[in-house]
Every structure is written in C-alpha cells, then in structure tokens.
C-alpha cells in the first residue's frame, strides 16, 4: 500500500518538494507523470478537473485531493513523521513561524521559480522582473539565515529541520540555473548544504548528489 499518488513533473520544483519530503520520511507513493512540458497537460480538461488552478503538483489520498504544495507537505508531516518535529503545528511560536516561511516559499515559486522557467523553457513572462523579485527574496532569506548563524542555528525555524526548510529549498537551490548565482549568499549556501546532507535526501536535475558523502572510486 502506498500513502498517496503524486501527479508529477520531473523539472517542477514544487513537485520536487513532495518527492524530497517523502524521501526523507521514507514514505512510499505512486506517481503519475504529467506532460507539463512540452504538452502543457496540466492545463488540459482532465487535469483541470482534478486541479482547477492548473498547477502541479496534485496529490490524491484516496478520494481526497490536495492542490497546494505546502498543504501536501503538512499532510505528509502530520501523517508520517512520528517525531512530530517536521511540522510543529501546535507549538505557539514555532507553528506560526513555519507558516510564515511556507508563505515565503510561495513567493519563491513566483520569483526564482518563474525565472527558472523563463531561462530554461522560454516561459512567456517578464524574465527580468522575475529575476529582480528573486534577488529581493534571496536577500531576505540570507538576512534571516545570517541571524540564525549569529544564534548558532542551522534551520529556518527552531532546532530541527521543518517542512518550511523543504518548501524553501528547491527554488533557492535551483536559482543558479536561472542565472542567479549564490556568490553573495554564504548563509544560504551553508543552509542548502545542510538540507542536502539530510538522510534520505533525493536530488532533482540541477541539484546534484553530495558526492563527498558517497563511496569514492578511491575508497
């Protein structure tokens, strides 16, 4: 028995959030490959019937359909994280802070995420505007993560990685593919590395394996 079905596209950073969270928590799921590109299947009737917003990912749990990525992360954590640390929803301070960074991750989809679609797949949007917005978002994240370095902390919120880290990770990690390098963002670089070091981490195109953690050809 698998936990859910993911309507998936391999180059979508939002779909990747779900694959990553499921990988880390070792949750088994089914996938349906959606021809997001070049077919734009997510905008066809059978997909709009499932998600009227015409976005990916879509997640089904039996009859229940989820269409918002951050809600899917919450579902996985609430149902498949026995430690309860990935989504401390009931904590009076950590819960709201996680919500804040989940919302921030939605902004990243529309800044760095769109910049990526524009650079790579020629998405018909204003690429320069998306890149400017992405730089603003990266700087906001760098400021917060620098505060965390001063505090001796690694993660966005609290003492453990949360769904907020997973939600913010993909489009920040992929931003160099959209022409936005990480040169001026040392705190972001070290946070990305921490996420990539998590047990169960999975990759997506543009985010490679930490080969240093693997068995080398030279032993």
């Amino acid at each position: 028995m698998t936990a859910f079905t993911l309507y998936n596209y391999v180059l979508s950073g939002n779909c990747y959030k779900i694959r990553l969270m499921a990988g880390i928590l070792d949750v088994k799921y089914d996938t349906v490959a959606v021809d997001f590109y070049p077919g734009f299947e997510h905008r066809q009737n059978h997909m709009l019937a499932l998600n009227p917003a015409g976005t990916l990912p879509v997640m089904t749990i039996g009859e229940q359909v989820l269409t918002d990525t951050q809600a899917m992360l919450a579902w996985i954590a609430l149902n498949h994280d026995p430690s309860g640390t990935w989504y401390p929803a009931a904590d009076p301070m950590l819960g709201p802070l996680v919500q804040q960074w989940l919302a921030f991750s939605g902004r990243l989809t529309n800044s760095a995420g769109l910049a990526g679609l524009h650079s790579m797949l020629n998405w018909p949007i204003d690429g320069e505007a998306a890149r400017r917005a992405a730089i603003k978002d990266l700087r906001e994240l760098e400021l917060h993560l620098t505060d965390r370095v001063f505090e001796g902390k690694t993660w966005l919120v609290g003492d453990h990685p949360t769904i907020a880290d997973i939600a913010c990770f993909p489009y920040v990690a992929l931003s160099p593919d959209a022409g936005l390098d990480h040169d001026g963002y040392p705190a972001i670089r070290n946070w990305l590395y921490a996420v990539r070091s998590l047990p169960g981490f999975v990759t997506m195109p543009g985010i490679h394996h930490l080969h240093e953690l693997r068995e080398g050809a030279d032993g």
Partner: peptide, 11 residues
Amino acid sequence: TRDLPAGRVMH
C-alpha cells in the same frame, strides 16, 4: 572563515 567549513568549496 566561518562561512567555509572543512570539506567545502566556494567561488
């Protein structure tokens, strides 16, 4: 120095 721990690479 604090931003480049052991085993890490930067541009």
